[in-house]
Design a protein around this nucleic acid. Structure first.
Lengths: 152, 152
DNA sequence: TTTAATGCAAAAGATTTGCAACATG
DNA sequence: CATGTTGCAAATCTTTTGCATTAAA
């Protein structure tokens, strides 16, 4: 589930502009780390991103990957999903979208729905704070896992 | 945000029955660990649960807490939320409900909504797998954090 | 009594930090 | 050139595991 060339281009531009306007340096490693998260539709964890970037920057270190990912998260350029035991996964798709998560293997599928984006915020929630984003998550067995199930 | 005496009672009974019918032993520590998660409306992590149970069972060990929590999760008696960096939180409220999460401090508020429980599963999701649960999550600044903000 | 569960200590895994060397603006 | 950023190594924090001991059924 990869992203189009145009979408990637536009994410990269948004990223470079955001860093520049915050006075944060555009380093080689930051660019490659963001590109790696931005170009894929899967939701990699820090280790996976590290391995992929390492192919292009062999001297990069895992802690730089972490530092960069959390910085990008704090700037709102990527988001995190906490879906598996003790491991955070990152998502460069910051446009409103929703997820299907496989309860067995952790596989995540994105989907879009204007109806879900526009869901009304209940009164009970408004009293808790200012809502910025809404996110709907379905859980269940993905088709691959339920096939494996049947075969047993 | 604590639970009524009746609700706690009913959760405890469901728990004991579930273990008994699976042939899993009802140990002192399992009972106290479950009670601790069941009786609170906050969404504690393993460490917090450990500290609380330790007051009543001073010799309990952290690994027993972990083992028990994951077992309860696998049995569907509690669920997990992955909301903070590298730390899993547990929730004994398994009836359908939804969350407001503070983007800054991680505070979680529960709310109920029949409308959200009944949201229609889009075609795009049905093709990914069999949906078992739906969960809507709002993110934003909680009222406490936005007050602190204003004061600065 | 039998078998599963616990506690301990140690390991493993994930993430963070201090600091000297280095690259960007 | 000044300052922010990196890589390294070590530290820290969270979670898991092996094994002898203990307790539930």
């Amino acid at each position: 589930m990869d992203i189009t060339r145009e979408e990637l281009q536009s994410r990269m531009e948004r990223f470079e502009e955001a860093l520049r306007s915050s006075g944060i340096k555009l380093t080689h490693q930051r660019i490659e780390i963001f590109r790696e998260v931005a170009k894929t539709g899967d939701h990699p964890d820090a280790e996976k991103i590290y391995k992929r970037v390492k192919k292009r920057i062999p001297t990069i270190s895992l802690d730089t990957v972490y530092r960069t990912l959390w910085m990008l998260n704090d700037m709102g350029l990527i988001t995190t999903l906490g879906l598996q035991r003790g491991r955070v996964r990152f998502d460069a798709n910051v446009s409103p979208h929703h997820h299907f998560v496989c309860a067995r293997c952790g596989r995540v599928g994105d989907f879009y729905s204007q109806d879900f984006d526009d869901l009304e915020v209940p009164e009970a929630v408004r009293s808790m704070g200012d809502v910025a984003t809404i996110h709907v998550q379905f859980r269940g067995l993905c088709s691959r896992c339920s096939e494996n199930n049947r075969r047993k």
